[in-house]
Every structure is written in structure tokens, then in C-alpha cells.
Design a protein around this nucleic acid. Structure first.
Lengths: 168, 168
DNA sequence: TAGTGTAGCTAACGTCGTTAGCCAGTCAAG
DNA sequence: CTTGACTGGCTAACGACGTTAGCTACACTA
């Protein structure tokens, strides 16, 4: 991944578009328009739309890993930050979590970095960490999809869930 | 929702296509082809592709509710059945859970029916039930998306998670 | 027998991602 | 200097997608 300046500009434009208008607006034409060029010109810099998406996914994971590492091993605080990350840019979170991870195209170790604080916070058991991760991911996904009833007390559901996974 | 015989045939064809070839194959042209008609003819029976999808979603929820009701209030067994339902037709599960619920177009009470066994299994607290649901949904979503590392012991993660939500 | 509704059809449109092929500028090698 | 390659734009076009308009053949009813 050469990571030229122009590639960075394209990713920045795509990121802004995704954040501002959601996944439906993330078309190659719109990305190109934001840079005052035409859609086919993007193919001089990326192999296809998917490659641009993978770039955004990598960005997202790097930022998420950093945010979680900054927290440390407080499970409740990890939950708060995980949720806040997803709510800040819902479309990016969905892009990151929909479909199989493009592991081959992602920097090595990124996945482990993201997971490490959670494993620690939960007492070291990876299965317990996966369960807690599934809980957090489920909460966020359902919230973003508007699947909880409007009156549901999500803060309380988070509290209940995280305390269920607290190291015993 | 008039639910004519022809509408049922179309939904059946769409369901089969979705199950056999996944969401990418669920195009109006392919659905029409399966019925030996042309795509525009479908619009005599449904307002658009989304209406067909909503029909499938309603079917899915009805079947899921029935399956969960049959289980009763055993949390571990509920988890097993929830997971099995999603793995049997992954694309249908994703269709059901992606995006906001079309609550207006779904039969009344369907959502409550699906939720009831879980609320009971968890001891009656709706927040606890939502947390457990988020866990189950997260587990299934991550598994379907291939997001867990290949060596992860998912049965164990399910066990850990469900026992964390068992009524205390 | 005339009239109406049903359910198919073809043709067409706009949007999407993508490809082919052209051209102007930059810049290093002869 | 000039030549030649590379870079990064462009236009035109394609096939797939969902959707609409408008025609027609048939069944059934008044």
C-alpha cells in the first residue's frame, strides 16, 4: 500500500462524505465530485470502490484501537468509548463491521491491538472477551439500526450487560 | 396487506433465491426469472423491491417467534435456537436485522411475541433481556460476517455469555 | 355482447461501478 | 534541446440495477 498524498486526499473526501451523508451517499461519482474530478479518474489511484472502502476500514480500526488503548482496562469505560466511537460515525462503524474482515489488506496486528484492552478488562479469558465484544457490538448495531423500542433505557442495558461480564 | 396467491408465490420464489444464493442474488430480475415472467410484471403485485423484502422480513419474524415460543424459557436452549435460526438462512437473518424495523408494515405484536420468551428466561427484567438479546445478536452477526478468528471457540463464548445473563 | 379489470409484455430512463482509449503536462535521458 | 515515458486528468461507453409508462390479451361480469 503505497499511500500517496492523492490517495490520502481521496480517503479524506470519502470519509467526510460517509460521515456527513451516510453509506448511500458514498458513490464513486460523489467522491470524485468532492475532489472536483470525474469518477473514472479515481481509478488511477484505487483499483475500485472496494479498495477505497478498505482504506476507510483500516483508518477506522486504527482510530478505534487507539481510543480503546487509551482507556486501559476499565470495562465500563471501555463500553462507553466503544459505544461513543460507533455513534460518532455510524456509517463508518457499519462499514467496518458489515461483511468479512479484509484481513489480508489490513495492517498486521491491528485486530489484536483492538482486542487486547478488552481481554484484559475481562480477566484474561478470550472466550469471555469475545462474549463481551459480541454484547457491545450487538448493543451498538441494534441501536444504530433503530431496533430497540423508543422507550428502552439503553444506559441501563449497557450497565446490566457490562456488569454481567465483569471479571469475577 | 391483501396477500393474494400470486404474492405468496413471489415471496416463496424470493425466499428460495435468498436462501440459495444470498442477498446479492435477490434482484427483481432474478425473482421474476424464477417465476418465468419479466421484472416489470412484479410491480403489478408489489409496490417495489422493498415491499417484497418486507414480506420476507415478516415471514422471518413469524417463524422466529414461533421457534422461540416453542422453546419456552430455558435461556441456554433459547440461545441455541436463536443461533440455529440465523445460521440456517443467514441472508434472511441479515435482511431482518439490517436497517430500521419496518414496524408499520409488520403485524402487530410480532415483536413482542419474539421478545417474550427471552424476557421470561432472564427473570422478567426488560433491560436484562435487551442486554441478552444484544449478546445473542452480536454473536450471530459476528459469526455470519466471519469476524471471529478461525480458531475461536464459539460454543464456549455462547456458554460464557448466556450464563452471565442467567437469572440470578 | 360490450365493458372492465387483471396480469403479462416491451421500451425506456436514471444511477451505479467500471473499462477503454485519448490527451496534456512533467520531467529525466540522450 | 529534444525525445520519450509516465502521470493524472478527460469523454464515451457498457452492463446491471430498480423503476415507470404504455400497450395488449384474456377472463369475467353487466
Amino acid at each position: 500500500m503505497a499511500d500517496t498524498p492523492r490517495q490520502r486526499e481521496i480517503l479524506a473526501a470519502a470519509r467526510a462524505l460517509l460521515a456527513a451523508e451516510g453509506e448511500a451517499a458514498l458513490t464513486v461519482a460523489r467522491i470524485a465530485q468532492a475532489l472536483s474530478i470525474k469518477a473514472p479518474s479515481l481509478y488511477k489511484h484505487f483499483a475500485g470502490k472496494r479498495a477505497i472502502e478498505v482504506g476507510l476500514i483500516a483508518q477506522g480500526f486504527a482510530e478505534q484501537a487507539e481510543a480503546l488503548e487509551r482507556v486501559g482496562t476499565d470495562l465500563v469505560e471501555l463500553g462507553r468509548v466503544y459505544r461513543a466511537f460507533a455513534l460518532r460515525e455510524p456509517a463508518l462503524y457499519r462499514l467496518m463491521t458489515d461483511g468479512p474482515l479484509p484481513r489480508a489488506e489490513l495492517p498486521d496486528g491491528l485486530e489484536a491491538r483492538t482486542a487486547a484492552p478488552l481481554v484484559a478488562a475481562v480477566g484474561g479469558d478470550p472466550d469471555r472477551a469475545r462474549a463481551a465484544w459480541a454484547f457491545a457490538h450487538g448493543m451498538v448495531t441494534l441501536e444504530l439500526a433503530g431496533r430497540f423500542p423508543p422507550h428502552a433505557d439503553l444506559d441501563e442495558a449497557w450497565r446490566v450487560g457490562l456488569s454481567a461480564f465483569a471479571p469475577r
